[in-house]
Design a protein around this nucleic acid. Structure first.
Length: 598
RNA sequence: GCCCUUGUAGUUCAAUGGAUAGAACGCGAGAUUGCGGAUCUCGUAGUGCAGGUUCGAUUCCUGCCAAGGGCACCA
């Protein structure tokens, strides 16, 4: 029996007990993990029931506990003797109920708990935690959205980590996820770098410089030169007009520089392991919102101002008025998002949910956008996954002052730090391992904070092998693999037959309280994953993995595995196997590799 | 001026209205011929302020204070 079914059974019996003793029907029954393993494996709190009847939670807990035992006995075979202690009724020892104050705590028999959680996880293997919650539901997930005038920066790293992890989490819950990106490849800011290259680039090639950094260098140059020559802003605007007119020379320059950018980005995205199903280029869509505007006018959702500009009044939604088309007939930023939403609605007709992973500074923009889309009759579910900014311990970053940390430098820094940690411990120089650990450090640090909170990124702390970090969790995994390998070697040495994975049915399972704690923690994995998906929040999974890693490290400090008596050893090896599976899967959901050796 | 978000230990983060507010780093003390000490054990210290709702509030509501973001015919 799976843990999930076991819980359903217990919930059902609680429902019956409450009905019988208290006389009310409970719809949902929440089972929590008690604060300490000594208090049981699951608990039901009686406050809510107490609120509905005139009885104290403790009284309710007490009567539910004894009624539970009776109904449990009826359902699972009648026990022979009644217990003297009314709160603890061991009529059937598969599940015992015990009232403690306002709580009913449940104790599950060792072998049942072990089999329901450990054996089940080993059986499910890579599919552990997967569900069909989102079956037949399609999600379009937009993230990254960089500008083609500079390399990816630290903010994109958070954005990409969130987007990529969320995609993995949603997929595990059965959603069909389409990962898409929008490339901001046009506009005055793009012309700034183009103008500088035209003036000062002398047809140079990026040579051995990373080509996106090469382009970004000219963008930074613009800000510096502006100090001396304030006409540069107008020159950039003139260039934009030429670009819009299709001037061959400007277009050629634009294409050349954008190609450099794409080549540079590709290296970064590849390194991060990031891919998109589809990319939308702003240059293709920026003018195409006009049909949407026209339709809105026809439907009376928008109105025209005296000078010909088109506007919508959202004051009834507690928002302001918003211009959607300029008096000269050109569209604004939000117009293209309206168009994109309609376009995606056609391209993904089955999609019911559209998620935009975009920084918190655009919260107002998306409120306005979603409000307009609703008025236009688009009934899909739109969601802005808003996240806070990434700061450095040294202080604020400024694009103008060139103190923005670009993604490549940051990745190099964390990988470099990982490498020096490796060198401290071994003479072996393993650059693949350093890459893996560095990226784990980076991604974990960016994901372990709830999305809407700002992050202060501290590279030293992120790469530290101590504390709540990616490398610590990777270490925990590698250590378990090491024990597993050692066990296999021992078996060979003792010429024992390789009998395949141990089976719980053959074991006499006896659990100590540390093992119960670990097993119950493992049992929570599917719920944590589900909550991460429902809340669009990978940080829940990140914290969970750290907690699991911490208790397993603590465990084999206290208890022997390979030197334990045979049944105990097999039982513990199975438990480690289950923990390995869950940690590997959890790391994967965060976009982090589990390494076999460190 | 208006709107949104965030205020938890020295620092970085947790806590679906419920059991004693948990971790990590730092600091202090300890464990090492160990199934990987890249670990573990113990100690240290906290809910911005004032009200309210509730049996119960870090969580919900109101006001204040502080930080950040937004309110373009910019993107």
């Amino acid at each position: 029996m799976f843990y999930h079914d076991l819980k359903l059974n217990i919930q059902d019996l609680i429902r019956q007990a409450v009905k019988k003793e208290i006389g009310i029907d409970l719809d949902k029954i929440r089972l929590d993990l008690p604060p300490s393993p000594d208090l049981g494996d699951l608990s039901f709190s009686c406050f809510e029931v107490a609120g509905r009847v005139k009885q104290s939670p403790a009284e309710i807990a007490s009567s539910v506990a004894s009624a539970f035992a009776t109904s449990f006995a009826r359902g699972y075979g009648r026990s022979k003797k009644a217990s003297a202690d009314k709160s603890l009724v061991p009529r059937n020892d598969t599940v015992k109920a015990q009232a403690v104050g306002p709580y009913v705590n449940f104790f599950i028999k060792d072998d049942v708990l072990f089999s329901a959680i450990i054996s089940a996880i080993i059986e499910q293997a890579d599919n552990v935690g997967d569900s069909q919650l989102g079956q037949d539901q399609e999600v379009v997930l937009e993230y990254s959205s960089p500008n083609t005038n500079k390399p990816l920066h630290i903010g994109h790293l958070r954005n990409n980590s969130l987007g990529d992890s969320l995609a993995r989490i949603l997929k595990s819950q059965g959603y069909k996820v389409h990962k898409v990106g929008v490339i901001n490849d046009r506009g005055a800011h793009i012309c700034k770098s183009m103008l500088m290259y035209q003036k000062y680039g002398q047809d140079q090639l990026p040579a051995d410089r990373k080509p996106d950094h090469f382009v970004g260098h000219f963008y930074q140059m613009f800000e510096q030169k502006m100090v001396e020559d304030s006409t540069l802003a107008d020159q950039a605007k003139e260039m934009l007009i030429k670009w819009e007119d299709g001037d061959p020379e400007v277009r050629a320059l634009w294409k050349k520089m954008n190609d450099w950018i794409y080549a540079g980005w590709k290296v970064t995205y590849d390194r991060l392991g990031n891919t998109f199903e589809k990319l939308y280029y702003e240059s293709d869509i920026y003018q195409k919102g006009k049909e949407v505007v026209a339709q809105g006018l026809t439907d009376g959702v928008f109105y025209k101002l005296a000078d010909g500009a088109v506007e919508i009044n959202l004051e009834s939604e507690n928002l302001d008025k918003k211009i959607l088309m300029r008096s000269n007939g050109t569209s604004v930023y939000i117009t293209q998002d309206l168009y994109l939403a309609e376009l995606r609605g056609q391209e993904f007709p089955e999609a019911h949910k559209f998620i935009y992973v975009v920084g918190m500074d655009q919260e107002y923009h998306f409120k306005v956008l979603f409000s307009i889309l609703k008025k236009l009759g688009l009934e899909q579910n739109f969601y802005h996954l808003s996240y806070g900014i990434v700061r450095l311990p040294s202080g604020k970053m400024s694009s103008r002052a060139g103190t923005v940390v670009n993604a490549d430098d940051l990745i190099d820094e964390v990988v470099g730090l990982a490498m020096s940690e490796i060198k401290k411990r071994t003479d072996e120089v393993n650059s693949d391992l350093a890459e893996s650990i560095g990226l784990a450090a980076l991604k974990y640090y960016l994901l372990h904070v709830a999305p809407r909170k700002d992050i202060t990124f501290d590279a030293e702390r992120a790469v530290s092998f101590e504390g709540e970090t990616g490398p610590y969790i990777q270490y925990t995994y590698a250590r378990m693999q090491s024990i597993k390998i050692k066990n296999e070697k021992l078996k060979i040495k003792n010429s024992q037959p390789k009998a395949g994975p141990p089976r719980a049915e053959k074991l006499k399972v006896i659990l100590n309280s540390d093992e119960r704690e670990i097993i119950n923690k493992l049992g929570q994995f599917p719920e944590v994953l589900e909550r991460s998906a429902e809340n669009y929040d990978p940080s829940l999974m990140a914290h969970y993995l750290f907690e699991l890693a911490a208790i397993i490290n603590s465990f084999y400090h206290e208890h022997q595995v390979l030197k334990a008596a045979e049944d105990e050893r097999e039982q513990r090896l199975m438990m480690l196997e289950a923990v390995s599976i869950v940690i590997k899967k959890g790391l994967n959901l965060l976009g982090i590799d589990a390494v076999e050796r460190m």
